[in-house]
Amino acid sequence: MTGPLLEVRGLKVEIAVPGGMTRPVRGVDFSVAAGETLAIVGESGCGKSLTSLAIMGLLPRAARLAAETIALKGLSLIGLSESGWRRLRGERIAMIFQDPMTALDPCYRIGDQMAEVLRQHRPVSAEAARQRALELLTRVGISSPEQRLTQFPHQLSGGLRQRVMIAMALLCEPELIIADEPTTALDVTIQAQILHLLAEIQRDTGIGLILISHDLGVVAGVAHRIAVMYGGEIVEIGERDAILGRPLHPYTEGLMHSIPVPGETRRGETLGFIPGTVPRQTGELTRCGFLERCPYATGRSAAGPVPLREAADGRLVRCVLPLDGSGRDPAAWTRQAEGV
């Protein structure tokens, strides 16, 4: 038995802000196996991007990283030198961002950018690099790739740019790809195509994939496992269909009840919602971080910090009174006063 492809334990990110320290990531544990897609979901600001940037060694300067383990096939990434990171990034871990325009250089032709990435890591001739770029553009479903090589990023549509990003991520055959909201800026029709492409590449190459999204619909079709983040912590992590079908954490249930689904929710019916906003907490949590917004909270939720615990089906849940899929009252999500 081999270990996981990526192992993350006790990942914390702290950022100094005027008047104190924020803790946007508070001790996150997960692993990704080769050939597996782990989705990380949660509302804006819950720490999804900082988690992925930490794994890529790309945290903003102001941020401080602490972790017990961040290891890629046993190689520790903690305290890696800048040159070590440069060898690793692109070569073994690649990242796909929400907005390809921020990752592509507007002044260079697509072909030159792809060749440069490849030649940073491989001693290949210009012609070989061109061939490899052509091969990958074709692989990601771009028609007339020769012509695309000579174009500048702004000459491509959003969907095409995202395909180019995916092709670039694949150039050096990385073992792990982190895709941070890869389809959020795209049309729904193109979104479906890009998700297909990611799923297919993953099946064919057996890479590990971390898919970050705030959209449960996006992850439902692609993920094997789902980690739900809230306030810098994982509150629930497990098999996709178990989480979507029978959420055990109230936050996950609240998210599921907020989404209208044609054919299931009645048109115009009152949708569930999670009242309030994520409180900005600077110190260590002394109780459940979701307490103020939880319709099921009890005295026990305030008794102390809540650890992740294993549920009967093997998933992990951070709740003193996890839902059991029956008995509880999901209408709680629509009944609350419409206060702000």
Binding site: T189, L195, H196, G217, A220, G221, L244, G245
Partner: peptide
């Protein structure tokens, strides 16, 4: 292309070309 967040949801088959 509507993505369902329900368990067992599959990715929709897209049968139209990508380019607007």
């Amino acid at each position: 292309s509507v993505l369902s967040p329900r368990p067992g949801a599959r990715l929709p088959e897209m049968r139209v070309g990508a380019e607007f």
